[in-house]
């Protein structure tokens, strides 16, 4: 199979208006991805499925990822020559910026006909509150049907063009999207013997600490 860069260039030639970005994956798995824009996503997906050299006929996996707003610190290092003629100094400059929150859908494509893959597609929403609509790829791959419903249920991403977009795992009247990072589950915490992290915080909220004078029971 051609490399992802070649594929990106081929898509860019075929869909000049489309915005296709190569999203590199620094981990040893080296499963890099193509980030598509929402308008052309379905056309590009159809092309990927039908192109004789690719034939990505199987969309194996569909996942949502939540990226809440976070502050990132960019460090830029500049080398400043020492005016006194000594060794040049490295000056670090820190800039803070807010990375806006977004939701992402990831598709893993494989080809059964040609036995290659994965090609990873990513679609990103505008934000996490009102611009959460993305095109559904269910018309291209049936396998996305239930998985997109699951992403809708758990992350709240609305898939346009999905034939039957309903909640799938939670019940119909449920209002929240529980896989989002800022979801808080209903408060029915109960004592646990080994609390830590979030659970410890909840334990502190619900159960009083022993009085300092009380003899500790073994």
């Amino acid at each position: 199979m051609e490399t992802l860069t070649q594929l990106r260039d081929r898509i860019a030639a075929l869909f000049p208006a489309a915005d296709v970005v190569l999203a590199t994956n620094p981990s040893p798995s080296a499963q890099h991805a193509l980030r598509l824009d929402a308008t052309h996503a379905r056309a590009i997906a159809t092309f990927l499925r039908d192109d004789p050299a690719l034939q990505l006929d199987q969309c194996t996996n569909v996942t949502g990822i939540d990226w809440p707003e976070k502050e990132v610190v960019d460090v830029t290092r500049t080398t400043v020559p020492d005016p006194a003629g000594g060794a040049p100094r490295v000056v670090e400059e820190k800039t803070r910026r807010i990375e806006p929150g977004r939701l992402e859908v990831v598709y893993h494509l494989y080809s059964i006909a040609l036995s290659h893959g994965p090609v990873v597609l990513r679609l990103v929403t505008g934000n996490r509150t009102d611009a959460v609509t993305l095109p559904s790829l269910t018309p291209v791959w049936r396998s996305a049907e239930f998985q997109e419903r699951e992403v809708y249920d758990l992350f709240g991403i609305v898939f346009e063009g999905h034939p039957d977009l309903r909640r799938i795992l939670m019940w119909d009247g449920f209002k929240d999207h529980p896989m989002r990072r800022d979801y808080r589950e209903p408060d029915d915490y109960e004592w646990e013997p080994t609390p830590h992290g979030d659970v410890l915080a909840k334990a502190k909220q619900h159960y009083p600490a022993p009085a300092p004078s009380a003899p500790s029971t073994p």
Binding site: S27, S29, V120
Partner: peptide, 10 residues
């Protein structure tokens, strides 16, 4: 603590 990145293993 694996480094930043992602993987799909099957």
């Amino acid at each position: 603590r694996p480094k930043v990145g992602e993987a799909y293993g099957r």
